[in-house]
């Protein structure tokens, strides 16, 4: 489902002496449907960078990133938007939403975007929010005022609302209590069982060994300190 081939990434800092920083070289791996791959490596090894490149948030310097039949590295913006809407989900560590939108709508939005009718989308959103123990009294409020942990759970609910065939998870279990951690892990297992190809970053080692089928050490793609 996801196929990364010969991917490399550089940052050119034009305003700081045009420094060129090579952060990744010749990254190649594949993730099949129903498979979960965990990215490992020290902090700064490029786990998040790789994830962002697959999501189209960072521009690849060279190589291919096939998600389904779209090459994210060379696709037009609207193709990537379409991919993100229908195929590729992303649970980041930070919730970024428009102020004032109620939590229920924030979670239902990905479903509304793919044409699910309002009632069905709300039903799914309510189910996820209660599974993640967000008190019902908060559903009508904007998550911008919530605590960090609550925001993280709203973010997860939003990420799992639509059954994306490919899913990127950036520290989904970070800062969660035991109950909610368990819920998130079972959501991941459900998504795998549903055939989703998943790439995740988990600092939580027991969680990683429970859901991941394969671990990839990203430091293998880090350029030797020649630059």
């Amino acid at each position: 489902m996801i196929c990364v081939e010969n991917l490399s990434k550089t940052f050119t800092l034009h305003n700081q002496g045009s420094a060129v920083i090579r952060v990744m070289e010749s990254a190649s791996f594949t993730v099949a449907a129903g498979e979960c791959v965990a990215l490992t490596g020290n902090s700064g090894a490029g786990k998040s960078t790789l994830m962002r490149m697959i999501y189209g948030n960072y521009l690849a310097a060279s190589g291919r990133i096939m998600v389904g039949d779209v090459d994210v590295a060379s696709a037009e913006p609207r193709e990537i938007l379409d991919l993100r809407r229908n195929t590729l989900g992303y649970v980041s560590q930070f919730l970024r939403v428009v102020p004032r939108v109620p939590t229920l709508d924030v979670v239902a939005e990905p479903l509304r975007a793919v044409g699910v009718d309002q009632e069905a989308a709300y039903a799914r959103a309510r189910d996820l929010l209660s599974r993640l123990n967000i008190p019902e009294t908060l559903w009508g409020l904007s998550p911008t005022t919530f605590s960090g942990g609550e925001q993280q759970r709203v973010n997860i609910a939003r990420g799992f609302a639509h059954s994306y065939p490919a899913l990127l998870l950036d520290e989904p279990t970070a800062s969660l209590d035991a109950t909610n951690r368990e819920t998130v892990l079972s959501l991941i297992e459900e998504a795998k069982a549903g055939g989703a190809a998943i790439i995740g970053i988990f600092h939580d080692a027991p969680a990683r060994s429970r859901v991941a089928d394969l671990e990839i050490d990203v430091s293998a793609f880090t350029p030797k300190q020649a630059a």
């Binding site: 050119t12 800092l13 034009h14 948030n57 960072y58 521009l59």
Partner: peptide
């Protein structure tokens, strides 16, 4: 030109980098 989040998070042109920073 590009996807909004890509241009803002990984700007390529010197001017965009300056603008974002």
């Amino acid at each position: 030109t590009g996807l909004t989040d890509q241009v803002l998070d990984d700007p390529q042109h010197a001017y965009t980098q300056l603008l974002v920073s």
